[in-house]
């Protein structure tokens, strides 16, 4: 009985055989291509590094979406603001990595506070929440520009400029570092959700708020913690963006758009899906930019969204999303 299965009760990952087949095909194509051509391999690794950043921010969006069915437009600006905080810490004499690890708890607290102060009062109305996040977008942007100015700022390169050579292929140490850091933070987050009590409580609060609160989960606080964790992921994404884009108030805006695309491609409800989609999007854009002459830099964003629209037309709930079954 389809009508008895409410959307949230299905816990399967929702991955289907054709999608899996396509993923495997893409993987094989990338590996073979990398073995054949050096430039291809280089672009693939750089694309993975770029995609890992999309993936962390997309995962942050998915975290909040799963808990509250709301898209947080301020996610990118929040990431940008926390990167500025790290920058300020390095100005005060801290080393890069000390600043990095100090920024993460600050981002967490910031996320929690924003949720409690601005989102909780309007959480009944989805459109109101969306508008509030748009307001936050403008507010954070204004605050950062006011405090630090709109000009480019530079931080110390976290991974240095070293280039590894394997055969004829040159891998920038920075790309590898960005990829490793982003993936590591995603895995840590997954571990938190999978193996800790608080992770269990958060999943319960997102899936069945009423039932969770009946067994003693403080749903409101779980939502706030969700915002905090999303802000931490955003901070990682921001800090990993800084080495290539440098620090400026608009640096996360295009990244946020790609993260939107990745989150929707992955199916919005699926954390793993958003990560895979983010990585694929990064590689795709890099390879298309390298090999397709028509796709100049102006067309990067439209191209990403064209892919998104095509995928959505065939799978309206994303690559890994579950088919929505609504009770009427």
């Amino acid at each position: 009985m389809a009508s008895l299965v409410s959307r949230r009760s299905a816990v399967s990952t929702g991955i289907s055989v054709p999608v899996l087949a396509i993923l495997v095909a893409v993987g094989v194509f990338l590996v073979v291509g990398s073995l054949v051509s050096d430039i291809f391999a280089q672009q693939t690794v750089a694309g993975l590094a770029q995609g890992a950043i999309f993936a962390s921010l997309a995962l942050a969006l998915v975290l909040i979406y799963r808990a509250t069915e709301v898209i947080n437009f301020a996610q990118g600006e929040l990431a940008m603001a926390t990167t500025y905080i790290a920058y300020q810490l390095t100005l005060w004499g801290l080393s890069y990595w000390l600043a990095f690890f100090l920024t993460l708890p600050i981002a967490f607290v910031l996320g929690v506070v924003l949720q409690v102060v601005f989102i909780r009062p309007v959480h009944q109305s989805i459109i109101a929440v969306v508008i509030v996040t748009v307001g936050l977008f403008i507010l954070i942007d204004g605050l950062v520009t006011w405090k630090w100015g709109a000009d480019l700022k530079f931080m110390k390169a976290p991974f240095g400029n070293h280039v590894y050579r394997a055969g004829g292929v040159a891998f920038a140490r920075q790309d590898i570092g960005v990829l490793a850091t982003s993936i590591l933070s995603v895995i840590l987050l997954w571990g938190l959700f999978q193996f800790t009590k608080i992770g269990l409580a958060m999943r319960a609060a997102a899936l069945r708020p009423a039932a969770a609160s009946l067994v003693g989960v403080r749903v409101n606080w779980m939502l706030a913690i969700g915002w905090g964790l999303a802000a931490v992921l955003g901070a990682v994404a921001g800090l990993m963006t800084e080495p290539t884009q440098f620090l400026q108030p608009t640096m996360m805006q295009p990244i946020l758009l790609y993260a939107f695309a990745a989150a929707v491609l992955g199916g919005l409800e699926s954390p793993a899906g958003s990560v895979i989609a983010g990585l694929m999007l990064g590689v795709f854009l890099n390879l298309v930019g390298q090999y397709v002459g028509f796709a100049t830099s102006e067309l990067r964003l439209p191209l990403a969204f064209a892919v998104l629209l095509v995928v959505l037309l065939f799978k309206p709930s994303g690559l890994f999303g579950r088919k929505q079954v609504r009770r009427v």
């Binding site: 309007v122 307001g135 403008i138 204004g142 006011w146």
Partner: peptide
Amino acid sequence: GQDVVFGLIVIAVMI
């Protein structure tokens, strides 16, 4: 400061 005020007012009105 314009953006700060605008953002704050948008949020306040929605709340």
